[in-house]
């Protein structure tokens, strides 16, 4: 694992998410895509570290919101995905898309629930927002795996059961 490259990639994605994509009503969650990418292409311990780090960054870019919900939910689901990947290898794009969709929806629900516990305001149409974000992320995500793998010097063609 090249941690410097990881830091650059996560910083770049965070800036993109907080600036270029911030104003869009319909937007993919690039950090969620990275979460799934590292969870299925890294070994378990690295996947845990990257999941919590990406969750922390997701909290940081949401200025004004409570910190912690994204870190916990991303960490939890990233770890679960990493363990799942030891049993099932997910290589085909449709499966990767499905994985992003399910992870995005569940992680979003948990983050929303944790935010609610902290006293964050609730959004009435939260399910629609989560479904929309997860859907767009799942459509874009598998196509971003290849450039991410190239940048991280990770081979995506090998069998990944560890």
């Amino acid at each position: 694992m090249r941690w410097f490259r990881f830091a650059v990639l996560v910083s770049l994605v965070a800036v993109l998410q907080a600036s270029l994509l911030a104003d869009l009503n319909i937007k993919p969650d690039l950090l969620l895509i990275l979460l799934v990418f590292f969870a299925i292409y890294c070994n378990v311990s690295k996947a845990i570290i990257t999941s919590f780090t990406i969750g922390f960054v997701a909290d940081v870019i949401m200025v004004g919101s409570a910190m912690g919900p994204q870190m916990i939910s991303f960490g939890l689901f990233g770890t679960a995905l990493a363990y799942l990947h030891r049993v099932i290898t997910i290589r085909k794009m449709p499966y990767q898309a499905l994985l992003i969709f399910v992870t995005g929806f569940l992680a979003g629900l948990l983050a929303h629930f944790l935010g609610f516990l902290k006293g964050e305001p609730t959004t009435p149409n939260i399910y629609a927002v989560l479904l929309g974000t997860s859907l767009y992320s799942s459509l874009v995500g598998p196509f971003l795996f290849l450039p991410s793998a190239w940048w991280m010097r990770i081979r995506t063609d090998r069998l990944g059961r560890r």
């Binding site: 845990i48 949401m62 200025v63 910190m67 916990i72």
Partner: peptide, 25 residues
């Protein structure tokens, strides 16, 4: 490792927002 990071997450969650906002700013 998972337990430590989870603990860190909960510390962030229950820390005062005025403190955690510093990271965001």
């Amino acid at each position: 490792l998972f337990a430590w990071l989870m603990l860190a997450g909960f510390i962030f969650l229950f820390a005062p927002q005025s403190l955690t906002n510093r990271f965001q700013f």
